[in-house]
Design a protein around this nucleic acid. Structure first.
Lengths: 225, 225, 225, 225
DNA sequence: GATGAATGAGGCTTCATTCAT
DNA sequence: GATGAATGAAGCCTCATTCAT
């Protein structure tokens, strides 16, 4: 963890490198630092040191702390969405797609915990330039899940028509559950991505099926004890 | 919002008040400020001004920014747990308890958005003294939900024995879904606490039931398209 | 020159003083520093040290470097205008007023060379927030001189009507000449304010008289040699 | 103004050009930048970009920011003095020479406002290496004007002997008035160089004539009102 | 001859925190 | 009990300047 990104050099003055490479190293360092310390608590000094360059170079390439954070968010949001989409085969049934998407999601978040922290925690806690960036990504994922729910409804012959708001709520719930499980799995590293995905499928799929059959839970059920 | 917390006094130099009252005003102001700005971005100056007292007094009563934040977390965590527990009648069936607990939860988070922001967002994004505080509260809620799941299993005669890890995962998923829905409901204020709770019950209850009947979703289901 | 403004204390931590006093000390130090180094080259560190306080206090009272510089300009512009006006007895004839005004002007600039540098050099060389401030003062003085010229024209019976533009140009020339002489007198301290004023009166008064008698210099005068 | 100084080349990577040309382009860019931003606020980056070359080349040719600024001052001072001298025919009478010199002066400052800003404003506001440079030029002009005054005195038969200090003061006043009028004419572009020169001649010539006839303004003139 | 890559040093500003009254 | 006065420390950012190619 000492020199952060390994550039094959002991230490000394940072070796000459093409801009693209340096920029990537800086983003790597920034994601780690922002992810662990938070936006405000992360210092440009620390990021530069972890990247193995001097601070002015960070500014030369990434402009400002704000721009740097935004660049991190964009890159990692893109990476996460790409990972999930790549993990899904659109020829599968809806539940198959959900299953593989969840596996990809949990795998990615487990492999990039700092990136996940940036997206899930840090970006959402710091005002408007940033929250919007990550919101867009989240909306994209929610939309994907929403589409899957509709697809599942079509596959289930004779499914009751689902109200839009219900679907939206379900998607929110599902995504939120996934986010929570990602943190849980990351915290206790004995839980694998596959297990997390299975837990969520078990939890969610039956509920969805019920709904599509028009069976809804209602408070009236409650019998006195 | 001018003078922040209304202290029932015209204005002038803050009147001599009992310590407990003053302290509450400071915490109120701190929760608002921390909730909106985040821990690092909130300044003691702003908090003191919003509380209507001088900065040294804040230090006299609450010692340091860290202690102040911790006090906020503790107070609001306590308040949330209390709200949820008070909303639940232990004589109801498990699903009834879950239903009323969720309603209490969504109601409380909707009525105290800054407090919720402190607990859900701010406290978790800033290193160790704070994350632990809120983790304990979350564990308490997870434990409560876990107990409900076990209770439900007992109520369902002939229920398959549930593995501990499954239950833990389910509880995490349920709590995560609730957190996500709280944010969703707060963002679009057309969604009421009751609706959010209903959405989650619909989503979760069937899944729980299935599980208890030993019906689990499994990847083998996936047919080729 | 060591501790700048004498506050009667050896050195150590700056003694408690009422805000108004401290603010004046800071402005004093700032005028000296800005006047000698220029706006950009003057550092807040140097100003604070010369004022005998810590930097944050400067910011607490004066907000920013820009505001501090503006405050300097305003204070010194006011002081200069006041000095000139106070030196003039409006019951005198126009030339008497001009004479006493010039004496007051040269006396003031000689006694406050740093302030004069701020107004004449520094404020005019640094973009828009500042140039405007000092422009207003200069316009005020130009207007005063313009009024004097008109008054002189009235005193001279049978004076030719003067064109507005001519008067404006004359006033500019006179003020410019005065500014230049102020620098000259300051540079070689053997020239007194009174001598500078006399030089300018000799230079200017006859020209004004001529003009008012309608005698204008014209290129046609030029005889071949 | 995109590429700054037109180098007669399409664009691309700055073509190999003779050193003298490159150097001139850099000085041109520097004069513009220094004239508009001031010495400290101008950045070598901006100058290099405006000149269409890379920063190291600027250093290779001109050594340092200080040297670059000095080179600007020297070049523009030379240019101004040359312009004035070239505009004057030494065979004319003293007033004719003054008239044509002033015209040349106002024409040059109007045509090279950035250069004039460098000489008149920027160079004089920044400490010792620079102020001296421009002082020398100013002395040269003052000496020229002084010579003209003496010449005029000789032309006027029976002229009273003029004290050296008086002549020096007059020359300072005249030059200062010219500087002020140059700024005035540049600011409101409705004033032409010729008009500015005429204004100053009217203002100054009669005064000079008076003086040479031994008629001096004296405070004793002042009658009570 | 010309430049992309890189940095030491320093400036403005803010903040948590403490005295002395 | 309460506060106006004051600061050490640290953070963001820019700039003049130099290598290595």
């Amino acid at each position: 963890m000492g020199e952060g990104v390994d550039d094959g050099v002991g230490d000394g003055k940072a070796r000459r490198m093409p801009r693209a490479v340096r920029e990537r190293q800086m983003l790597d360092a920034a994601v780690v630092t922002f992810g662990r310390r938070g936006y405000r608590a992360a210092s440009m000094d620390e990021i530069a040191e972890l990247a193995g360059v001097s601070k002015p170079l960070v500014y030369l390439y990434l402009n400002s702390k704000e721009d740097l954070f935004t660049a991190c968010i964009r890159r990692e949001a893109q990476a996460l969405v790409t990972a999930v989409r790549s993990g899904v085969d659109p020829d599968l049934t809806a539940d198959g797609q959900l299953w593989s998407g969840l596996r990809a999601f949990f795998t990615h978040t487990a492999e990039h915990p700092d990136a996940w922290s940036v997206l899930h925690h840090q970006a959402r806690t710091h005002g408007e330039p940033f929250a919007r960036e990550v919101s867009q990504m989240r909306e994209e994922i929610v939309a994907f899940v929403t589409a899957l729910i509709h697809e599942a409804a079509q596959e289930a012959h004779g499914a009751t028509e689902l109200a839009e708001r219900d679907v939206a709520g379900l998607a929110q719930a599902l995504v939120g559950a996934a986010e929570s499980l990602a943190g849980w799995a990351n915290a206790s590293d004995s839980v694998t991505a596959k297990e997390a995905a299975a837990t969520l499928m078990n939890f969610a799929w039956a509920g969805l099926g019920n709904l599509m059959r028009g069976e809804r839970w209602s408070p009236r059920h409650q019998p006195a004890h």
